[in-house]
Design a protein around this nucleic acid. Structure first.
Lengths: 218, 218
DNA sequence: GCTGGCATAGTAATCGATTTTCCTCAAGCG
DNA sequence: CGCTTGAGGAAAATCGATTACTATGCCAGC
């Protein structure tokens, strides 16, 4: 039962992931003809994908100049972190208020998957980075999944990945600390303590930013 | 001095505006070949534009099915309104705190332009609707322009337009009331009263939603 | 020696044609 | 009679070629 994907979708996934995980460097020029060869697709298909990525902010586009990987900056990181705090805190609070048993079950399951990967990552297994980060994404998404707004969730999902790109750039790994924060976040959510949950989440993100910035300054 | 635009950009503007102002109905199928004739462009160009609009949420896309104008629903309106309140309140507060004289000047100028159009609209001139709404957009953007986050402003800009689409659908016109709220918003911002400004803005949006929903229920 | 314009090459933008996929409908079989 | 299956057509996805633009560098004139 092989999953059949159209070329555009798989191309989109590959390029997006190449950008998020740094295989395509910030500022790097994305020539349609080069990508055509590299990814084995026609210019039209490549351009469709680049247009999508451009409107999401992963790719920078200028008329008559073409496409390049979106640049990164310290202010970019701060902006995205602030935005994530704003969106995710709000969604989290709503979600805790309205979430029922099904939501709780989903959150616990997502946390379990994440935790397993965190352990493998902690034991030095570098190969699981992408899967680990996907589970990270899924855990945070599951936490806010009862917020009642698909628009909000979609927005958060994109912001999360744009923020993740910075974590990957700075090779920011906080191991045990982030692991504990996830656990605390889970607990606060399950006992419906919105204020505590907001507090932990804010710290989770803020200290992540500080950690990344201090790492790059050395 | 004729402005030279590339085809894709002008096509994007036209289709986007056609969707926002309801000339393309929600759910309407967007066949590439039809659009090709209607807007005089090739399928590739049309598809590039539709991909962009899809990732912004104005167009709905499904594999092997093609594109259609994004559907609209009451919950969609509520979600976008909530999102706009969240984003704009936050940005407004930051902007009031950091904004200096230049920011104040920009806000006053934007409000003046908006007010002039509000007057023309109030006197029954239906032809200015699009310009009027553009000035509305610009006024709100200028208010948050000192928030320090380009990401936030870009996000707000898109959300504003998606919300505007609902106002256009419901033909929601609050005339004098909205005019007064804009004036109050300007005043609160200039005297740096963040709490008052947040309060007015929240009411501005909330009552706009209520007005629209009560109109459709008759 | 410097500047301004023109030729040229490289790349982006656009195009129409071709291939692939999906849906419909009807005929054949159980 | 109902279900499966395959032919046919419509529309989406993909393609390579063509056109348009821009930047680079060379040459002529000042």
């Amino acid at each position: 039962m092989e999953e059949k994907r159209i070329r555009r979708q798989s191309l989109y996934d590959v390029i997006r992931s190449d950008i998020v995980f740094g295989r395509l460097k910030p500022g790097e020029k994305l020539k349609a003809t080069d990508l055509r060869a590299r990814y084995d697709a026609s210019v039209s298909t490549v351009r469709e994908v680049l247009n999508r990525l451009a409107s999401e902010g992963f790719v920078f586009a200028r008329e008559q100049y073409g496409f390049s990987v979106a640049p990164m900056s310290e202010s970019g990181l701060r902006e995205l972190a602030d935005l994530r705090i704003l969106l995710e805190n709000h969604a989290l609070e709503q979600s805790i208020i309205t979430g029922g048993t099904e939501w709780e079950a989903g959150v616990i399951a997502a946390h379990h998957r994440l935790q397993r990967m965190e352990q493998r990552r902690a034991s030095g297994d570098q190969s699981v980075v992408e899967i680990w980060k996907r589970y990270d994404w899924e855990f945070h998404q599951s936490l806010i999944s009862a917020c009642g707004s698909e628009e909000l969730m979609a927005l958060h999902g994109t912001v999360f990945d744009k923020y993740l790109r910075y974590q990957m750039l700075y090779l920011s790994y906080r191991g045990e600390v982030a692991e504990r924060e996830h656990r605390e976040l889970l607990e606060a959510a399950l006992v419906k303590d919105t204020q505590k949950a907001r507090q932990i989440l804010t710290r989770h993100i803020t200290s992540g930013v500080e950690h990344a910035l201090s790492a790059i300054r050395k």
